[in-house]
Design a binder for these strands. Structure first.
Lengths: 244, 244
DNA sequence: CCCCACCATATCAATATTCGATACACAGGG
DNA sequence: CCCTGTGTATCGAATATTGATATGGTGGGG
């Protein structure tokens, strides 16, 4: 299982997630690894350019290298490419924030967004992960998942995001409705004060590829307004599906 | 030197850079590694979620995981945070594409941009690397580099980007002018038909942190127009520097 | 002012881990 | 229907990784 790679990437992830530069001993303690081991690993990552060293303090931090490679993957992403013009179209038509989500190992990932110029709070949601069962985008995806994947996703939501208050039976019922309607709605389900409506993007063979969602504050996007956008969003999602 | 990590990341980079899913033998041949070795490495990356397997064809490709972690680093980037409002301001005032660059191990990296809605060609320049000596953004950075770093950068430009036609003496002269003027200009220097003007962002201690640039087609942005934007850009860059 | 405690870093023998030749099952093409 | 390619599993040998230990440097408290 190449444990050296596992450790190496864990160190890299830790550094990427850390606000400040980190020292060797500090990392070793926090990650429960041997100090010498961390020293070697960080040294290797340094020589590969994934990590930089503040020579004054001898502390290390992640560089932009991961981002650089990661972007290559995103730029090639077919769903993103297909969705981009429609995201923009929706945004310009409705003047609300529009998101693109994709399923990623049992939860969902925000892949792209179009957003009003200067939002009040800096919602750096692109690149973030969210529990599928709580968001409109997520439910649009879950509704079209094969049953065994859905089961895993429910378990994952409870474990990974420590969400205990999901009633599987109730969720399954809601998802059946989503499948029938063609759209999913969330009212303050994930972020309080935020409502949204989402529609699924399906591949040629009917497998779920992602979803697009319109999101905004409850004051502006009440249930009636959301439902008014339904056909607009379903239409866009369908066009994206066809473009795949 | 933890050669296992080196190999692991090389495999990951190769997959991230590859358009199509790759097979084990293929990778092994291309990367000059043992087939068993690649198999183990890819298996490890798979179990860590950095790579996914197309179970039909048994081919592997990079997932969005690297991007996810990479984004965390970008989002925290101080220069990017400080520059963002000014980038937007410049874009709205001038109605031209605006870029933010940072120096990164001997060349430059495009960190952020604000761009007209639907550009003719899809310039996915964010995340891309460019030879510093050829671009306005790069020259604005080079001009404020300590001499030994500048020497390295010139060598790197010739080797890494295989640019032989850089005259070091001439470049140094140009950079002195850039330092005096406070801005750098490029006319079709890197991408033919593209002109741009850039100003440096400096840290508290005077070290170069990055640069901002306005870029556009030669027809619209001729030399006179570019120079007309100079004070605008220098002003923004200075404000960003102060915000750091 | 000096000591001590902590740090990053270097060393090196021991061994756990990676390595790669070999083998196998499977798929597709000639 | 073989034959050459693939992905995958196995296992002894080899070696790269490991971690206790040592060193030099730095900063803070007495």
């Amino acid at each position: 299982m190449d444990s050296t790679i596992v450790k190496g990437l864990r160190v890299l992830e830790t550094l990427a997630a850390s606000d400040q530069p980190r020292g060797i001993s500090e990392l070793a303690r926090e990650m429960d690894l041997n100090k010498s081991n961390v020293q070697r690993i960080v040294g290797t990552l340094l020589s590969l350019g994934y990590v930089s060293k503040d020579s004054a303090t001898s502390r290390y931090q992640a560089t932009l290298r991961m981002w650089e490679f990661g972007l290559q993957v995103v730029h090639r992403n077919q769903v993103r490419r297909a969705a981009q013009p429609y995201l923009r179209g929706l945004y310009e038509k409705l003047n609300e924030s529009v998101f693109l989500c994709v399923p990623d190992s049992d939860d969902i990932l925000y892949l792209d967004k179009m957003e009003a110029a200067a939002p009040v709070r800096i919602s750096s949601q692109v690149g973030a992960r969210a529990p599928a069962a709580r968001t409109a985008s997520g439910k649009a995806i879950l509704a079209h998942l094969p049953t065994e994947a859905l089961d895993r996703a429910i378990v994952a939501a409870r474990e990974h995001f420590r969400i205990a208050d999901i009633d599987p039976a109730k969720l399954r019922k809601e998802l059946a409705a989503v499948r029938a309607d063609g759209f999913a709605i969330s009212q303050s389900g994930y972020r309080p004060g935020v409502n949204s409506i989402a529609a699924p993007i399906l591949g040629r063979d009917g497998t779920i590829m992602g979803s697009i969602a319109v999101t905004g504050p409850v004051e502006r996007l009440d249930l009636a307004t959301l439902k008014g956008y339904a056909s607009e969003i379903i239409n866009a999602a369908t066009r994206i599906s066809e473009a795949l």
